[in-house]
């Protein structure tokens, strides 16, 4: 759906999305790189599991949250790509350690 304009000048940068190596351009935000790689949805919501993707591209809607280099819930549109960056799309709420509870 999204295609780069022909006059793109940024240098190619290799990042990974869900383990797959993808070319981004210097200056891209993570959200732009997700679009350029054909990823519309980058997370599913914690409450209903509905798919969500970058929407406002300016830091206010929080729909583009992804895990970046091990840190969950990062705003993709407010983060620039860097060489070797590892981006993981999110399913539901982020995890913290979840030990098993016993009934009292």
């Amino acid at each position: 759906m999204f295609a780069r304009l022909p006059d793109t000048t940024g240098a190619r940068i290799a990042i990974s999305i869900d383990g797959e190596t993808v070319d981004a351009r210097a200056g891209d935000t993570v959200a732009a790189a997700l679009f350029a790689a054909g990823r519309g949805a980058c997370r599913s919501t914690p409450v209903t599991g509905a798919p969500r993707g970058p929407f406002c591209m300016m830091g206010v809607c929080f729909d583009c949250m992804v895990e970046i280099d091990g840190r969950p819930n990062q705003q993709g549109c407010a983060t620039r790509v860097a060489a070797g960056m590892r981006i993981v799309t999110q399913r539901g709420a982020r995890a913290i350690a979840t030990p098993d509870a016993e009934s009292p």
């Binding site: 914690p46 409450v47 819930n73 709420a93 982020r94 995890a95 350690a97 979840t98 509870a101």
Partner: peptide, 21 residues
Amino acid sequence: LERVRPFLPYPLETLRQTDEG
């Protein structure tokens, strides 16, 4: 705080996790 996966099965007087995480 952020929504996180369920980790608090019971509320504390000053800390709880909602049904939505």
